[in-house]
Write a protein that binds this DNA or RNA. Sequence first.
DNA 1: CATGAATGAGGGTTCATTCAT
DNA 2: GATGAATGAACCCTCATTCAT
Lengths: 219, 219, 219, 219
Amino acid sequence: MNDEQWLQELLKINDEEVKLSDKQAKILEAAIEMFAEKGYAATSTSEIAKRAGVAEGTIFRHYKTKKELLMAIVTPTIMKIAAPFLAKEFVKEVFESQYSSYEDFIRALMNNRYEFVKKYLPMIRIFWQETAFHSDIKEQIQTVFMENIYGKFKRVIDHFQQKGELADLPANTIIRMTITTIVGFLLTRFILLPNLQWDDEQEMERTIQMLMHGLKKEG
Amino acid sequence: MNDEQWLQELLKINDEEVKLSDKQAKILEAAIEMFAEKGYAATSTSEIAKRAGVAEGTIFRHYKTKKELLMAIVTPTIMKIAAPFLAKEFVKEVFESQYSSYEDFIRALMNNRYEFVKKYLPMIRIFWQETAFHSDIKEQIQTVFMENIYGKFKRVIDHFQQKGELADLPANTIIRMTITTIVGFLLTRFILLPNLQWDDEQEMERTIQMLMHGLKKEG
Amino acid sequence: MNDEQWLQELLKINDEEVKLSDKQAKILEAAIEMFAEKGYAATSTSEIAKRAGVAEGTIFRHYKTKKELLMAIVTPTIMKIAAPFLAKEFVKEVFESQYSSYEDFIRALMNNRYEFVKKYLPMIRIFWQETAFHSDIKEQIQTVFMENIYGKFKRVIDHFQQKGELADLPANTIIRMTITTIVGFLLTRFILLPNLQWDDEQEMERTIQMLMHGLKKEG
Amino acid sequence: MNDEQWLQELLKINDEEVKLSDKQAKILEAAIEMFAEKGYAATSTSEIAKRAGVAEGTIFRHYKTKKELLMAIVTPTIMKIAAPFLAKEFVKEVFESQYSSYEDFIRALMNNRYEFVKKYLPMIRIFWQETAFHSDIKEQIQTVFMENIYGKFKRVIDHFQQKGELADLPANTIIRMTITTIVGFLLTRFILLPNLQWDDEQEMERTIQMLMHGLKKEG
DNA sequence: CATGAATGAGGGTTCATTCAT
DNA sequence: GATGAATGAACCCTCATTCAT
């Protein structure tokens, strides 16, 4: 039961509760684990069935193909990855009250995504590994980025540029650098070199400082 | 003949000429193309043989297993990726004459790796795609990094910190940020969003500026 | 309701009304359609269930196996195919009043079976397709033929041979030729080349003439 | 070796020798036997492999799909079935010397096809069973019939009608009846009731007589 | 009586690898 | 050295059948 909660949370879209039968949840769990460990192509449906404690046919009763199983995992997660930008009030909140500076905004974003990656690491690993091979995943990510993130992100940057906080670089460049820096930290921290001794708070703060100094308007 | 030159160049280690028979070169070429396009797991040896114009058995005469074929491609390339740091005189050159500032060093490094990635894009793609699945590739990269890059990189940073050019952050942090920034740019430029309109020189200069402002010693 | 009437008619034996529940009728209808279209082996029970608007399990509540479902369709139909010979008074009717010649008899038989095939074409198609694969169907046909048709047919032929209408060929030969000719026409007309422009009345009359000239006693 | 001769003969087209490796011949033999016995759909490739004494993969090295294996058997055989009509000199031979009457022609045709069916019975069985399910087989048969048989057959009939030997029925009708009669005999003899006591020569002669009386021009 | 989730054996097909030629 | 036929394990997927609800 409890095991399924994180799954339910990860997979639900628009706050609609997802109905996951017991077996279905076990299949998804097993698939996420194995795809993350060995990659999609190298994971066989029979292994997933075995790990899920289910007959192989059961997988195909719920997901017509192995690919569909992958997409059932990946598609809702893309929304969750973009989550901070999805709230309707997002821009307003950034402008009006919540964040008094781009630095605050970045700090909140980083902390938030840090927790997310930490919690759903296997899912992130799946993206990291499979995006290159599945153009449909790539396209979904791009679509979500263009429709839900890019515009809002740009407005935030315009806002802080007008306030004189940010250098007069093109918004695209600032977006790219911001994302590269945050993603670069998170991937290094959790995927590439997870075994290093990390002082996460300090390293995140340093990363933010680096980014802010790099981007701030020259006096 | 000419086709093989870039291959020879890419694969040779320590200036030893690599002896590649005609068939062998064709196999490697075909394998690189297909691994980059479809990924290692999704490429069959029979496809490679067909594209190389060679019998299936011939591949296994030269490489005991499919994996060994992959490693024959990947292993020498790791050295090439690390190339700028491999020269014996590297540190001395950085200190004494060539680069009068960390910014110059970074600029040279970025330009150099930009050309490399551009030239050997399929190889980079293979790393991007396969590192996650093959722990031996990951280990080789880490070994080369630790043995050939880390120490020299650190000395460079110490040097410029002593000269007061760089902030008093831990070297590890500076290395991570520098690499993340450069790799982040190159991957975005060539792999993730190659179809955007890029003004490469300008974008690289901005990236360097961002990085330098982020890392420089505060007045 | 009305849909089921032909089914009821086709499946009832010895004038016993068949009790078909609504679902049962829909299952049979769906099965007949699909077996005729794609063949027994290539039709899955889940497809039948879907087309019948019924759960998969429901099929197996009424018919223990898929094969039993086939036989539930096929067995009563065999009787209907043999229908003209099943009436108790059959021989008497032929001799005494109804048919004054073998030609009349053949003509009546042909017209009758023409209408039957036209009406129950999917069923005929099932026989055409499945008889070869199911020896039990073949045996049932042979049994019905031997028990209900052969003897009566023979007596009809004896009768008209004695009247000097038919050549002195063995009855078996005449039966075979008569059936081959009629079945040959019907299969060509409805199964093999249904798309040709057929003038059915004329072609049947010609077929009968051919058969009669072929079989009549030489002056 | 000797086993393969009939196979080679059956499968060769235009007198080109077919190169059949040992394994390939065994696969074809096994497939023909099993398709004839149990039908295409009910025969598994693993069974074929077992009976052929070959690994299952070997089948797919020679035939990309199971269907292709079927067609490799069926396609050349269609030509063999049509063989009597394929000779270039066919019409001339019929007119000039060989056959002085339609009866002779039919007799020769029947004897010839009788031997063929007897020799290649499993192949005939495959046609009988599979034509209904594979529209491509049906189309191939129709094409061969229209391109190689129909026209020549029609000219033969025109010829003997002009000689006053045949009734003035439409050629199509005569063709249909002739084929129905011959095929009807052969199928009954070899497929439907092979276990009856058949006096083949006598029964064929009677069949021919029936057909000829049925078709001859009335005095 | 009806449902449909679950089963697991078996289906066709692919593939890295071997080896006789 | 080069070939390509042969292998057989493993792959994804389908299906008739069962059974708890």
